[in-house]
């Protein structure tokens, strides 16, 4: 069982309190009616499915209830960082530097 840091509670807690919520930084277009079928398809279905650091969302379901973002390495299953929804997308090179 992983330990996950909730950036809102500022506590590191067991995975059982959290639920996974898919890839992060996929914003719903602000005016959906103006986007093409292809753009809408990409928004709905197309994901990066990376092998390695993955930007993804989690929800502290059995805690504060907040959605937050994370970068987790899908090979090692390790979190590089978790951050609040409105924080900027962290740069991968800096994260990898830090985790060394």
């Amino acid at each position: 069982m992983l330990l996950i840091h909730c950036p809102y509670c500022n506590q590191t807690l067991p995975e059982a309190e959290f639920t996974y919520a898919g890839e992060a930084h996929i914003a719903r277009p602000s005016d959906p009616s103006s986007v093409s079928d292809e753009e809408w398809r990409d928004f709905l279905f197309i994901r990066t499915n990376v092998k390695g650091p993955h930007y993804e969302r989690w929800r502290h379901f059995h805690g504060c209830g907040r959605y937050f973002n994370a970068v987790r390495d899908t090979v090692s299953d390790r979190f590089l960082i978790t951050y609040k929804t409105d924080d900027p997308r962290p740069e991968l090179s800096k994260l990898l530097e830090k985790s060394k």
Partner: peptide, 13 residues
Amino acid sequence: LNMMEDYLQTEWP
């Protein structure tokens, strides 16, 4: 409720 929270928190804060 989960879906509502998702939209409320992340799309329409």
